[in-house]
Design a protein around this nucleic acid. Structure first.
Length: 310
DNA sequence: GTTTAATGGGTAT
DNA sequence: TACCCCTTAAACT
């Protein structure tokens, strides 16, 4: 589910599956019929993500803009990769708002909060609202300069600022809780009291961790898992790994040695976090009882004993 | 069978 | 701060 790593992985998956191909666009559920008609049959140029926003660019300066919200899912699967399929694409299951289809792949979108056909100017307006994205680090504007300037001018708590997409694009509730814990930062520290160095270290950590999240399709922040993940990525030749099943995340028999891009790697790691969703349990670092509290409408999880830094 | 929770965010009050 | 939207699956009764 969707923080920035999910969207970037999705963009890469869609790009590999659809870029350069003429793509059918439909709305099996019927709530995107008009938009689908505007895109149907056009060539897909690219799929890219900034923060939690996904853009699929079609020929003729038309873009499909998707925001998954809290519960959206965009499932991409290959139904005839390697050899032509006699059976064709699978029928849509459930409330499929948008289906992308070409000769090899099918992608079904469900539950998204934003699904729009937009022009390049509207995309520019969306991007202008976003803060720097750790997954675009190294590109112009994607560093800590802008976010530090914002921090210096506000008393809003750092835990709220980390989730503000105009401060940092792509960070969600899991990354924010885990990063604050990793850096021993008190979630309630007012923005202007956060040390420049602390914020820089958090940013550098996100730049390091989020690509691992993209590669494994999972937020990985526990140090031992991070080390194992890095070793696996370093040991993987090129960018290809064995495809593990019919659908992302599902285990299944290898489909005849088919090779798929690394971003479809299946994660071997259990979903474990230091503080996220562990209220009442022991802090992995100091053993103190972990706490939870709703902050700005979202559940915050932290350790009240060892998160004291600013 | 019904309720709830979920890695989000916009708009109204 | 409250409420709204989107959808599904797990947790309740």
């Amino acid at each position: 589910m969707p923080e920035g790593h999910t969207l970037h992985r999705l963009a890469a998956t869609l790009d590999a599956a659809f870029a350069g191909t003429r793509t059918r666009v439909s709305s099996p559920q019927g709530r995107f019929t008009d938009g689908a008609a505007l895109l149907d049959g056009r060539l897909v140029e690219s799929a890219r993500a900034w923060g939690k926003h996904l853009f699929v660019t079609f020929e003729g300066e038309r873009l499909l803009n998707v925001h998954l919200g809290l519960i959206g899912v965009f499932d991409v699967s290959g139904y005839a990769v390697g050899s032509p399929s006699a059976v064709g694409p699978p029928p849509p299951v459930g409330a499929v708002r948008v289906r992308l289809l070409n000769d090899t792949h099918v992608a079904d979108l469900r539950g998204a909060t934003v699904v729009d056909v937009i022009a390049p100017e509207q995309q520019a307006a969306i991007l202008a609202r976003l803060g720097p994205d750790p997954l675009h680090a190294g590109e112009p504007g994607h560093d800590t300069a802008r976010s530090l300037a914002k921090l210096a001018r506000t008393d809003r708590p750092v835990a709220e600022l980390l989730m503000d997409q105009s401060v940092l694009a792509g960070v969600g509730n899991v990354y924010r809780c885990e990063l604050l814990w990793r850096h021993k930062v008190d979630p309630f520290t007012p923005g202007r009291r956060v040390r420049t160095q602390t914020w820089q270290l958090i940013w550098d950590d996100l730049v390091d961790l989020m690509p691992i999240g993209v590669a494994f399709g999972q937020i990985i922040t526990l140090d031992d898992q991070v080390m194992q993940a890095k070793a696996m990525l370093a040991g993987s030749p090129g960018h290809l790994v064995e495809w593990q099943g019919g659908r992302e995340g599902e285990r299944g028999r290898p489909a005849g040695g088919q090779r798929r891009p690394a971003y479809e790697r299946v994660s071997p790691f259990p979903r474990e976090y230091a503080v996220y969703k562990r209220p009442g349990q022991a802090c992995p670092r100091c053993g103190s009882r972990l706490r939870t509290q709703v902050l700005a409408g979202r559940n915050l999880f932290w350790c009240g004993r060892c998160q004291r830094r600013h």
